[in-house]
Design a binder for these strands. Structure first.
Lengths: 334, 334
DNA sequence: GACCACTTCTGCAACGTTGTAGAGCGGGGT
DNA sequence: ACCCCGCTCTACAACGTTGCAGAAGTGGTC
C-alpha cells in the first residue's frame, strides 16, 4: 500500500540514495535518470515517511502553538495568523489547549516537545518563571505580557500604554466615573495587572480619583463574566458613565448586561474593550477597542522562532513589540 | 543535552531494552531494577524521541483536524471539543486550515498524511468525491453534509429536518414572509442546499408560496455577508417579517443590518440562525438557532477514527448522526 | 597519454526506538 | 537429581531516511 524509497528505486532501476537525491532536489542527477525516478514516484504515489526523515535530520517541521482556549475569539484569530505565517516557513502547526491551567501548561512546555516539535509559540496564563527556567531547551517564543518570565524570546504589545490611551479616550469624551472590568488578583493576571496600571495612570494624569468600587474583578474573561461584572457594578449605587473592559468578550458581555438594564450605549454608559475581535465590529453597538496587530504578532513570533532554530540557541533572549491602534466605534461615539 | 535510552541504560547499568521496558510499563522487571532505571530517567530528564518511536511502531499518536477557517466560531468551538475528545485517546491534534479551497483541501487530505498523522478529521467544503476516492488510505472521518462523498466514515446532523423545524418555528409564530440568507449555487454549498431544502419543505407544508426574491445568496458565511444580504433584502420592496440565516454569523450580520435600518428584532423582523455559537447567547437580541451537539459531533468523530484505526480498515464506511435541538431566544420571542 | 576536476551514482552507517528470540537463573514438581 | 517453567534481562535487527565517503564515468588540459 505505502511505498518506500526502496520500492521506487527498484522500479526505476537505481539506488535508494539516488531516489532520495531526486526527492530532495540534489542537482547532480542526469535528466533522464531524474525523469525515470520521477515517473516511478508518480506511479507508486510515493510519499516520504516524515517520521523517518525527522529521525534522521533531527527536525520535524512541526511547531506547536499553545493557547488557553481555542474558542476565545482572540486566540482563534491569532491561531489563524500563526498557521498562515508558519506555512511560509514550511512548518505545520500543532495546536494545544492548556485551559490556562498551570499543570497543563507545564506539560505542554516540556512534555510536548519530546522531539515531536521543533519549537513552541506559547501564550501562557499561569506558568511561572521557575517553570520556564526548569525546561531544557525547546526553543520557545512567549506571547503576552508576563513581566517576569525569565530568559525566553517573546512578542508583546505595550499593554500599559494601550490601556492608558483607551482610558484617555474615555476621559476626553467627558466621562468621569470610569469603571474597569477584568481585574485579577492572582499572579496569573499579568495582562490584567498591566491594563489596570494603564487605566490608573490615565485617571491620575487627568486628576481623577481612583475608586476601587469601580473596579470589578473577573476570574475568566468570557462574555458571561463581563455580563456578571457589569450587573454587579450597576447594583452598587452610583452608576458609572463609562466602562473599560480588559478584553472584548468581557465588553460584549457588559453590553448585553447594559441592554438588559435598559441603559443605552454610548448615551448612558460608554464601553470600550481590548483585542479587536471580529464580533466587536458587528455587535449592537459596534465596540471601541484597542486593536493589537495580530498578524504582526504572529509573524514576529514565527520569525523569532525561526531565527532561534537556525541561529545561536544560547543567544540572549529578545523581546519584540508589536504595534496596536485604537479602533473607535459606536460604543464611544460622542 | 538531550538524552537517549542508551544514556539512561549506561547510567542505570542495564541494557537499552530494559530501559525501554520500564518506559513502556512492561511488568517483568524487578522492583529494584525498575527503581534504578527510573532514577536514571529522572536524573537525566529523559524523554522518548517520538519520531523514532513512531518510525518503529508505524503510529504517530497525532491526528489532524482540517477545517476551513479557525476564526469562524463554529469551527473554533468544534476544534476545542475535538482536541478534548482526542486527548482521551492520548492523541495530539494537529490543526490545519484549508480556507475552503479545493486545492488546499486535497493537499491536506493526501499530502499531510505523509506518515505524520495516523488519521484525519475533515470538514471539507470544496472537495469532491473523486478527490477523496483518489486518496490512498489515510483513515479519515468527514464532518458535515456533502451527500456525495463516497466511502468515508462521517458524522452528520440532519440538516434538512433541522432547517425545516426552525422554519416551522417561525411559521408557528405567525410569520408569513420568511426570507432565507446563505444560499449557494456552487457544488461547494452542500450545507446551504440541505438547509434550503428544509426551508422549502416547511413552507410547502404550511401552504406558503416559495418566493425566490426572498432567498439571498452568500458566497461566504461571515458576518459581513449576512449584513450585506440583509441590506439587500430590505431594499427589494416588500420587507420580510422573518429571516432564516443558514448560520449564526450570517444571522449576527443580519441583526446588525436590521439595527442600522432602524428595525426592531423580533417585533419587526424575527431572526434565526444555525450553529449555536457563543456569540449568539450574548448578542442584542440573543439569537434563536439550531444547536448541533458539537461535543457529541467531536466525540463521535474521534471514536469513529479510533475504531477505524484499531479495527478493519476496509470495513464499510459508517455515517453517524449527531443530535441537535432548537435553542429559542429573544430574536424570535412572540 | 597522463592527470585532474567534475559529474553521476552507489553502499554503508547511523538517527532512537521496539519486537523477537533467547540466555541465565532459581524454584517447584516428579 | 532431574526437568520444566516463569521471571528477568539481553543482543540483535529492523522501521525509512539521509550524510558521508568514495567508485565509476566523462571530458578538458598540458
Amino acid at each position: 500500500m505505502r511505498h518506500r524509497l526502496k520500492d521506487v528505486a527498484e522500479r526505476a532501476g537505481v539506488s535508494v540514495k539516488t531516489v532520495s537525491n531526486v526527492v530532495n532536489g540534489y542537482v547532480h542527477v542526469r535528466p533522464d535518470t531524474r525523469a525515470r525516478v520521477e515517473e516511478a514516484i508518480a506511479e507508486l504515489n510515493y510519499r516520504p515517511n516524515l517520521s523517518a526523515r525527522h529521525l534522521r535530520k533531527g527536525r520535524t517541521g512541526v511547531i506547536a502553538l499553545a493557547v488557553p482556549e481555542l474558542d476565545i475569539p482572540y486566540f482563534a484569530e491569532l491561531a489563524r495568523h500563526v498557521v498562515t505565517a508558519a506555512a511560509e516557513y514550511g512548518w505545520t502547526v500543532l495546536i494545544d489547549q492548556t485551559g490556562g491551567r498551570r499543570e497543563q501548561e507545564r506539560v505542554v512546555a516540556s512534555g510536548i516537545s519530546d522531539h515531536l516539535i521543533d519549537g513552541l509559540i506559547f501564550s501562557p496564563l499561569a506558568l511561572t518563571a521557575e517553570d520556564l527556567a526548569s525546561l531544557d531547551g525547546t526553543p520557545m517564543v512567549l506571547l503576552g505580557e508576563r513581566v517576569d518570565h525569565g530568559p525566553a524570546d517573546r512578542v508583546v504589545i505595550d499593554n500599559v500604554t494601550a490601556a492608558r490611551e483607551i482610558t484617555e479616550h474615555l476621559i476626553q469624551l467627558g466621562h468621569r466615573r470610569i469603571a474597569a472590568i477584568g481585574s485579577q488578583r492572582t499572579d496569573e493576571g499579568a495582562s490584567a495587572r498591566l491594563r489596570l496600571a494603564g487605566y490608573v495612570e490615565a485617571l491620575r494624569a487627568a486628576g481623577l480619583a481612583y475608586d476601587e468600587t469601580l473596579v470589578a474583578p473577573a476570574t475568566a474573561w468570557h462574555r458571561a463574566d463581563g455580563a456578571a461584572a457589569m450587573r454587579g457594578l450597576l447594583t452598587t449605587g452610583v452608576r458609572p458613565d463609562a466602562v473599560f473592559c480588559f478584553n472584548d468578550t468581557l465588553a460584549l458581555g457588559a453590553l448585553r448586561a447594559l441592554h438588559e438594564a435598559g441603559l443605552r450605549v454610548p448615551e448612558d454608559v460608554a464601553v470600550v474593550g481590548f483585542d479587536d475581535i471580529e464580533d466587536g465590529r458587528f455587535s449592537v453597538p459596534t465596540l471601541s477597542t484597542v486593536a493589537p496587530d495580530k498578524e504582526q504578532i504572529a509573524r514576529l513570533a514565527v520569525e523569532l522562532l525561526a531565527s532561534r532554530l537556525d541561529g545561536d540557541r544560547s543567544a540572549p533572549a529578545r523581546a519584540l513589540k508589536a504595534p496596536y491602534h485604537l479602533e473607535l466605534r459606536e460604543s464611544t461615539r460622542a
